[in-house]
């Protein structure tokens, strides 16, 4: 019978050290991990559970298991598809506008001029205004009867525009308010990224006789690609859950013109008390958001590798 090979004391000691290290790391991490599971995983799994049940209002907990019924009801509801379409239109208009404006303003702010610091500080104001307040104030400014907006465009012979009553203009209003609110965020990140660009590369390009456009196109933009991609994804995740501005400015109207998906989910849950249907919608939107985010992440990685 072969006797077990005695392990080297040093190897055992290394194992003990590794295990102790691992235990120490998990010891520190476990409170945060438990908190994360409680605050992220539990609500998600609970939402999924509700989406497959009939919510019993007398106990406010999931009741009878109904399988895919809630999902089938949601997918048959034209209001759900309309809300997704409206959200798509809003995202397609707002995100590119905010990215272009944000980086454009960052280039301007980055140039040397007096009062640059004050302008930077002023840019932060829209970000700290509560969205409900922002929506309400814009609603007042855009009212055709009392608002400032029509009075101003009237001075140059334009308008009057029914900003909130015309379906197309109502969507434009939401995009304008959201852009007013979030462009400074993009500008802030873009400004930081521009300041962090390596100066020696630009000096070398200047020695080689590169003009402004060449430097921008062949140096600045490629170096900014990772930041642009990351900013886009962060904004995408923020914009996809927008509903407060629509709630305050148009309440989803006129008709269904600005009824974005999260406003529709909110209305179904807390006004119509259709919690199970709202949970099914939330799960569909969550899955869709995750898939699209994965596509964007892959796209941003490809862009980074290309540059």
């Amino acid at each position: 019978m072969a006797s077990p090979t005695p392990r080297h004391p040093k190897a055992r000691s290394r194992r003990v050290v590794r295990l102790t290290d691992l235990a120490g790391r998990w010891g520190f991490m476990s409170p945060a991990a438990v908190l994360l599971v409680a605050t992220l995983a539990y609500p998600i799994f609970y939402t999924i559970r509700i989406s497959f049940s009939e919510l019993d209002l007398s106990t406010f907990s999931p009741g009878e298991w109904v399988g895919w019924d809630n999902y089938i009801d949601v997918l048959r509801d034209d209001r759900f598809w309309n809300a997704l379409r409206v959200t798509g239109v809003y995202l397609a208009l707002a995100l590119p506008l905010q990215m272009v404006l944000g980086f454009g303003i960052a280039f301007l702010v980055n140039a040397e001029w007096r009062g640059r610091g004050a302008v930077r500080a002023l840019f932060l104001i829209p970000m700290v205004v509560a969205p409900i307040v922002a929506g309400g104030v814009w609603r007042m400014m855009l009212d055709p009867l009392w608002g400032l907006a029509n009075a101003l465009i009237g001075l140059v012979g334009l308008g009057p525009i029914d900003w909130l009553g015309d379906p197309a203009w109502a969507m434009a209003t939401i995009v304008i308010v959201d852009t007013w609110r979030w462009t400074p965020f993009v500008t802030l990140i873009a400004t930081a990224a521009l300041l962090a660009l390596p100066g020696d590369v630009f000096e070398a390009a200047e020695i080689d006789g590169a003009n402004w456009w060449t430097k921008f196109w062949f140096i600045t933009l490629p170096l900014l690609v990772p930041v642009i991609a990351a900013t886009f994804i962060v904004r995408w995740l923020g914009a996809v859950k927008m509903f407060d501005i629509a709630l305050a400015a148009t309440n989803g109207g006129p008709g269904r013109a600005t009824n974005v998906i999260n406003l529709f989910i909110y209305e179904e849950a807390f006004r119509s008390l259709n919690f199970a249907g709202a949970a099914a919608m939330a799960v569909i939107v969550l899955v869709g958001t995750m898939l699209l985010t994965a596509v964007f992440l892959r796209g941003s990685r490809m862009l980074e590798e290309r540059h």
Binding site: P43, Y46, T47, T59, F60, S61, L237, K241, F275
Partner: peptide, 23 residues
């Protein structure tokens, strides 16, 4: 960082069931 951000969105979307408490 982005996954964490995505998690925040997920929690926001699924916030409504948190209200459901066993009774």
């Amino acid at each position: 960082r982005l996954l964490s951000r995505r998690g925040v969105v997920a929690a926001g979307l699924s916030a409504l069931p948190v209200l459901a408490l066993p009774a």
